[in-house]
């Protein structure tokens, strides 16, 4: 479905959805929300973009290669940060990372970066799952060329 009306409305709608998703991710540690919830909202915005503007245009805008790279880097950073916290905790030096204060944005210690990583991974995974079920194949070959 590709009419001018839908395209224009989606053009207005998508930034709103994305801002809301980012808000849910960033305020996950002091209000309801978090990486998974915010990531699914962000993912839905990219899925909407793809359904309206078609797969070729979207693949140019969000190439498979870069999305995969983002997921991997986010996972590596999540794994190393959380793993480092576990290891530091084992040696009894977890005082490096401060404990958060309620109602203060920059206070959650390591929760904000972890939430951002989860948000990125969930966004892209939701997008990939939607493509897989809608089109049967991730844009594998033509993105890598």
């Amino acid at each position: 479905m590709k009419t001018k009306i839908i395209e224009n409305i989606v053009k207005i709608l998508i930034p709103l959805i994305q801002v809301f998703g980012i808000y849910v991710i960033l305020f996950g540690h002091i209000s309801p929300g978090g990486g998974f919830a915010g990531g699914s909202i962000l993912g839905s915005s990219i899925i909407l973009f793809r359904f309206v503007y078609g797969s070729e245009h979207t693949d140019k805008k969000y190439p498979y290669k870069y999305l995969m790279r983002t997921v991997s880097i986010a996972l590596i950073m999540y794994g190393s940060l959380k793993g480092m916290l576990f290891i530091l905790d084992h040696f009894g030096i977890d005082k490096i990372i401060p404990v958060g204060v309620p109602n203060t944005f920059l206070s959650g210690g390591s929760i904000i970066p972890l939430n951002i990583m989860i948000g990125l991974v969930v966004t892209i995974t939701f997008y990939f799952i939607a493509i897989l079920f809608e089109e049967g194949e991730l844009e594998y070959e033509h993105a890598s060329e």
């Binding site: 995969m68 790279r69 991997s72 996972l75 794994g79 190393s80 793993g83 576990f86 290891i87 084992h90």
Partner: peptide, 22 residues
């Protein structure tokens, strides 16, 4: 040495699974 079981799982996940797509 008591860290090794966790460390082996972390190494497998971070370097084995997450780094390879890059």
């Amino acid at each position: 040495i008591q860290l090794f079981p966790l460390l082996s799982i972390l190494i497998l996940l971070i370097f084995g699974a997450f780094l390879t797509p890059l």
